[in-house]
C-alpha cells in the first residue's frame, strides 16, 4: 500500500493556527467555481502526502478557483491546488497550496478553518463558451488555466469531496477535514489546458500536470461549516481520526 511519507510540518512550513473549534457558520452566495483535473507524474508522489494519507492510483492534481462576489470579508477569489488521496478508505484531496486576493478573508479562513493562503492576484473569467483563471504571486505567474467546450451536466453528476489540510488546532497538530456543503445551481464540464504551471510558486517543486482528465464549473451557494473531524497526521486514518466534539 502506498502511503504518504513526509511529516506534516515539512509539507506545510507555515502552519496556521485554529484557536477554537467554535466558529459562526458562513454562507457564501453566488460563488462561481472552476476546477481543472490533471493526472500528475506519479514517481515519488508519496512525498507530497503525510503518513496518514494514501495517494490514489493514478494521482490526480486538482486546480480550483472560487470567485466569491460577497462574504463577511468582502468579495474574494481563492485558488487552491490539491492532490487526490485517501484517508483510510475515504476519497479526499490534500491541500498543497492556496492563494487569495483579499487580506481580511485570508486572515479569517486561516484562523477559523485553518485554510492558509498566500496573497496573489487572481483573474477569473467565465463566458458562455469558455472559462479561465490565472494566478500570479510575487510577480510570478503561478498558473494559467483555460477551459473550453462547455457541456451542461445534471447537478447530481458532480460529486464534491472533503479536502484535508494541516493546522495547529486545539487538539494539537492535525489534518483538518474541510467539508463545506455545496448547493450547486448549475454545472458544466470542460476540456482543460494548463498553459502555464509554476510549481515553485506553489512551493511544490517536482510535481507537474502531465495528462488532462477533465474540468468542471459550477454556480453554488457554499456553506462553510464548523470543523467536525481532524486526523493525526503521523498514523493511518483508521486509528488517527478524531471527532472534534470529543476533543
Amino acid at each position: 500500500m502506498l502511503t504518504g511519507n513526509s511529516p506534516l510540518e515539512q509539507l506545510v512550513p507555515n502552519l496556521p493556527t485554529i484557536a477554537s473549534w467554535e466558529v459562526d457558520p458562513v454562507v457564501l452566495e453566488g460563488v462561481e467555481m472552476l476546477q481543472a483535473q490533471f493526472e500528475v507524474a506519479a514517481r515519488n508522489i508519496e512525498r507530497f502526502l503525510p503518513p496518514a494519507l494514501h495517494p490514489t492510483i493514478p494521482p490526480l492534481g486538482q486546480w480550483s478557483c472560487w470567485d466569491v462576489p460577497d462574504s463577511p470579508w468582502g468579495p474574494f477569489r481563492l485558488a487552491q491546488f490539491r492532490l487526490s488521496c485517501r484517508s483510510g478508505a475515504r476519497p479526499r484531496a490534500f491541500l498543497l497550496g492556496s492563494m487569495i486576493d483579499n487580506e481580511d478573508a485570508q486572515k479569517n479562513l486561516s484562523s477559523k478553518w485553518g485554510l492558509t493562503a498566500t496573497h496573489a492576484d487572481i483573474e477569473f473569467l467565465r463566458n458562455y463558451d469558455a472559462a479561465e483563471f490565472q494566478v500570479a504571486a510575487a510577480d510570478q505567474l503561478a498558473i494559467d488555466v483555460k477551459l473550453r467546450n462547455p457541456e451542461s451536466l445534471a447537478i447530481s453528476d458532480l460529486q464534491l469531496f472533503a479536502s484535508m489540510h494541516g493546522a495547529n488546532t486545539p487538539s494539537g497538530l492535525r489534518l483538518v477535514q474541510f467539508d463545506p456543503t455545496y448547493e450547486v445551481h448549475r454545472t458544466e464540464r470542460y476540456l482543460p489546458t494548463i498553459d502555464h504551471f509554476n510549481a515553485n510558486a506553489w512551493h511544490r517543486e517536482g510535481i507537474e500536470p502531465v495528462y488532462a482528465v477533465t474540468a468542471w464549473g459550477a454556480h453554488s451557494t457554499i456553506h462553510l461549516p464548523n470543523i467536525r473531524f481532524v486526523c493525526r497526521p503521523d498514523i493511518d486514518a483508521f486509528r488517527g481520526t478524531e471527532s472534534v466534539q470529543d476533543a
Binding site: D157, T187, V213
Partner: peptide, 23 residues
C-alpha cells in the same frame, strides 16, 4: 480487499459523468 480497492481512482471521482452513478 477494501483498502486496496479504495485506492483506485474511480471514474466518477475523476470525471463527472452521468454514465457512472456510483463512486
Amino acid at each position: 480487499f477494501g483498502q486496496a480497492n479504495s485506492h483506485l481512482l474511480f471514474t466518477r471521482e475523476a470525471y463527472p459523468t452521468r454514465a457512472y452513478g456510483l463512486l
